[in-house]
Each structure stands twice: as C-alpha cells, then as structure tokens.
Design a binder for these strands. Structure first.
Ligand SMILES: [Mn+2]
Ligand SMILES: [Mn+2]
Ligand SMILES: [Zn+2]
Ligand SMILES: [Zn+2]
Lengths: 121, 121
DNA sequence: ATTTATATAGTAATGATTCCTATTACTTAT
DNA sequence: ATAAGTAATAGGAATCATTACTATATAAAT
C-alpha cells in the first residue's frame, strides 16, 4: 500500500471523530479539504485501511460505519439520538465457553446494544 | 393485519428452515409454491411479521436475514461454510451492568460471533 | 351482495456499494 | 533530474438490496 494524500486525509478524518461515521459522512468531510476526491476513493481506502487493521468496520444495520478504535470493544446505540458509543465487554470467558459448548472458534465478535442512552432517559 | 395466503406461505417457509434466510431466498422458495408472488410482497410481509413480533430480523451485514425463533438468542457465523446457528447467551447480568456503568437502558441485543464452526476446524 | 379498506403484482425509484477505465502520481532505478 | 513501472485516483456506470408507487384484487364487515 503506497502513500496517497487521499488516504492520509481519510484516515485523519476518521481519527478525529468519535461518531462512528459512515462512508458518505467521511466523503462529505473529505470534500471540504479536497474538492475533487471521489466517493469510490473513499470506499477503496476504507477497505484498505480495514484490511491493514488500521480501522474497524461496524457492519450492523444497512449502512457500514467506520471506527479508528481498533482495540476490542463493542457498541451501544441510542434509539432516540442515534449516537453510537463504545463499551468494553470482557470476552475471554465467553469465547472459551463457546469453544466448549459449540466447538466453535470465535475470531471476531460484533455486539450492538440498542436502547436509550443516559441523556434520553 | 388481515389474512392473505401470501403471508401464510411466507411465514410457513420461514418456520420450516433453520438457515436464517434472506428475503431473496424466501422469495425464491415462495415462487415455487405461488408463481406470481412478488418480491415486494415478500418484503412487506416480512416487515409486518417482524412488527407483530412473529419473526425476528437479523440486520448484521449488508443483507437482512429473518428468523422464526423469537426468543432471546444470538448467532454464530462460520466464515468457511457461511452457516449461521443459534446460541443462547445469558444477558440479564450484562444488561444490569450496562445500566450501572453507562446509565444506558438496553432494549435489544444483537451479537454475532464470527469464526470457524465445528465442521470446519 | 355491497361496501370499505387492506393486500397484491408489477414496475419504477432509491441508496449503498462495487466495478470499470483512462489518467495521474508515487516510487525506484537510471 | 528523467524515465519507467505500477499502484492510486476521478468520474461515471453498474449492481444489489430495499422501498415506493399504483392500478387491480381480495378479505372482511354490514
Ligand atoms: Mn467504537
Ligand atoms: Mn436464530
Ligand atoms: Zn441518546
Ligand atoms: Zn462451517
């Protein structure tokens, strides 16, 4: 993967937000810094960054979201304001018990907790 | 929600499989019994059945899947064969601890454990 | 049987994502 | 510094899942 200023811009935009943005959100933000950047470039770079493990893809729901936080964590999503926030769920024991009960080797976990956040209850 | 033989057919198809089928899979199966059924009808009925709580929607990934099993459970997905199987994860304690640590009221949980199933490791 | 309203088939539209291709621009070697 | 080789880009077309539209059909109530 060789350098490009488009990728640097895209990665910078992701690192600067905690909103778990969509590809289109990132594209709009990128256009403000580089008017000619294309949506295809955004998608391609998001895929590459994810492949390199520099960002994570959250694929729950019909629109993919992207996350600069690559350490193991899960998400809370508020059904009122739509905000998605991080939560750490210890999963060592869980992975072990799934291995024992189902002979299934867990490699990746995606959890979404939907409900009402602290600002809306 | 008034009776229609299309909905009865669709619901029957979902109840008869454990594959967590997509809308298109259900559509293809339905066409074999009722040649003129339309994809729009399948989607509309899936939405209605979900609204009535008769089926569950699994919205991880870019394609929605449907589940006749409406009791609280989660899913394992094998990255080799693609099979999606059920797993029960006790969540009472988890919901309670999220309430305490994040003041977040969990209403719905969606967990996907990706990895290798017992037939492929 | 008549009325009323919901459901359907068929098709068009939408929205997210992927694919295609000529051009551009990093990178390495000369 | 120049050239060659190749990965990356812009822009647009194509794809795929899902939703919207609308005239017709059919369940349900009277
Ligand atoms: Mn996160
Ligand atoms: Mn299930
Ligand atoms: Zn909220
Ligand atoms: Zn498998």
């Amino acid at each position: 993967m060789r350098y490009s200023k488009q990728r640097e811009l895209i990665y910078g935009i992701i690192k600067a937000t905690s909103t778990h943005p969509t590809a289109n959100w990132i594209y709009q933000a990128a256009r403000e810094k580089m008017a000619t950047i294309s949506l295809g470039t955004v998608y391609r770079n998001l895929d590459q960054l994810a492949l390199e493990g520099m960002i994570k893809v959250i694929s729950e729901g019909n629109i993919a979201r992207y996350d600069w936080n690559t350490v193991s964590h899960q998400h809370l999503r508020c059904s009122v304001c739509g905000k998605m926030s991080d939560i750490e769920i210890p999963d060592r024991q869980l992975i072990k018990s799934i291995k024992h009960s189902h002979q299934f080797d867990v490699e990746k976990i995606e959890m979404i907790f939907m409900g009402i956040c602290s600002e809306h209850n």
